[in-house]
């Protein structure tokens, strides 16, 4: 069974269909890259997969032990966030907020979970540093650690390398690759950076108000070569 399966999903935004008849699936262990032009409906699909908007028709099925609110989401950063006065530890711990259940404060178990993710992302030395003083790459690592607090199985990354310099971009890709291959975290990445993102992808979905392509990376290469030839 797939982690997420979209079955003929149509999502409307302010009365207009943003995407129509979308079907694809995310399997365990996948590194799926979602590409498409601006306005192709990528963001809408992301929001639908997270349950932030409801599809007009079709179904989104979560399986393999994944619940809808256990997706590790890495949103695009807002200006307000960049200068937020909070330590790295506080930000990462906030990823556990949904696990608080009936209690008000983070217990030992959740603190240990946050500490583990901080180690995993190699930001232990920044633990008490202020989020607003970090470089773009360090901020993304912090947010990745937070996302991992919320999930055990699937990361959903929305344009994670936007605004990063080339070196930081490569570094972030290698971090994500490590999470995918060594820690068995499935990855869905929305990206503009075709070349960089494709290097590690196992599957690709091309969105253009619907799905124009969905398949393995090799099929994608053949498909896009055919498109260029045309």
């Amino acid at each position: 069974m797939a982690l997420i399966e979209l079955k003929d999903v149509t999502v409307a935004f302010e009365g207009v269909n943003a995407v129509e008849g979308v079907s694809f699936r995310v399997e365990k262990g996948d590194y799926l890259v979602m590409v498409g032009e601006n306005g192709s409906g990528k963001s809408t699909l992301v929001r639908a997969m997270l349950g932030l908007v409801h599809p007009k028709s079709g179904r989104i099925v979560y399986g393999d032990g994944l619940k809808r609110n256990q997706i590790g989401y890495l949103p695009q950063q807002t200006a307000a966030q960049r200068d937020f006065p909070a330590s790295v530890e506080e930000v990462v711990l906030s990823g556990c907020a949904s696990r608080l259940g009936q209690s008000f404060f983070y217990g030992r178990e959740l603190r240990e979970r946050a500490a583990e993710k901080i180690r995993m992302l190699d930001i232990e030395h920044l633990r008490n540093a202020s989020y607003r003083n970090l470089s773009g790459g360090q901020q993304q690592r912090t947010l990745l650690a937070r996302a991992l607090c919320a999930t055990d199985s699937l990361l959903l990354l929305d344009e994670p390398v936007t605004g990063l310099d080339p070196a930081a971009t490569q570094e972030l890709y290698s971090v994500i690759r490590k999470l995918n291959r060594e820690h068995g975290v499935s990855v869905v990445m929305v990206s503009h950076d075709l070349k960089g993102a494709m290097a590690d992808a196992t599957r690709v979905v091309v969105v253009d108000r619907g799905v124009s392509f969905f398949g393995g990376i090799d099929e994608y290469r053949a498909w896009s070569a055919r498109g260029e030839a045309r």
């Binding site: 997270l50 349950g51 932030l52 809808r68 609110n69 256990q70 997706i71 989401y73 949103p75 966030q81 937020f84 909070a86 506080e90 930000v91 711990l93 906030s94 990823g95 907020a97 949904s98 608080l100 008000f104 404060f105 983070y106 937070r146 996302a147 919320a150």
Partner: peptide
């Protein structure tokens, strides 16, 4: 703690329940 989560990043907080 919940107020912090919502203040820092509302979409994330919403998505994670």
């Amino acid at each position: 703690n919940r107020i912090f989560a919502v203040t820092f990043d509302e979409p994330f907080a919403r998505a994670t329940g």
